[in-house]
Amino acid sequence: MSIAVLLVISATYLMGAKSLVAGRREGLSFLMGGLFLSGAVGGLYLLMTGADWLMYLLGEVEDFALLSEISPATVLLIVALPLVPMMRKMTRGMAW
Rank of each mutant, 00 (worst) to 15 (best):
S2F: 08
I3D: 02
L6I: 02
L7E: 15
L7A: 15
V8N: 09
V8C: 05
S10M: 01
A11L: 12
T12R: 08
T12P: 00
T12W: 07
Y13K: 09
L14H: 13
S19C: 05
L20W: 02
L20S: 02
V21A: 07
V21M: 04
G23V: 06
R25V: 11
E26Q: 10
S29E: 14
S29A: 15
S29T: 10
M32I: 09
G33P: 02
L35K: 01
F36K: 08
F36D: 09
G43Y: 08
G43E: 13
G43Q: 10
L44K: 12
L44Y: 14
L44G: 14
Y45M: 13
Y45E: 15
L46V: 06
G50L: 10
G50R: 08
G50F: 03
A51I: 11
A51Y: 07
A51H: 05
M55N: 15
M55L: 13
G59M: 10
G59N: 09
G59Q: 07
E60M: 13
E60F: 15
V61A: 06
E62I: 02
E62T: 00
D63K: 09
F64P: 00
F64V: 03
A65T: 05
L66P: 00
L67D: 07
S68R: 13
S68G: 08
I70R: 01
S71I: 01
S71N: 09
P72R: 07
P72C: 06
V75R: 03
L76S: 06
L76W: 04
I78C: 09
V79Y: 11
A80K: 03
L81T: 14
P82S: 04
L83A: 13
L83W: 14
P85R: 06
R88F: 12
T91V: 13
R92C: 10
M94F: 11
A95K: 08
A95I: 12
W96N: 09
W96D: 12
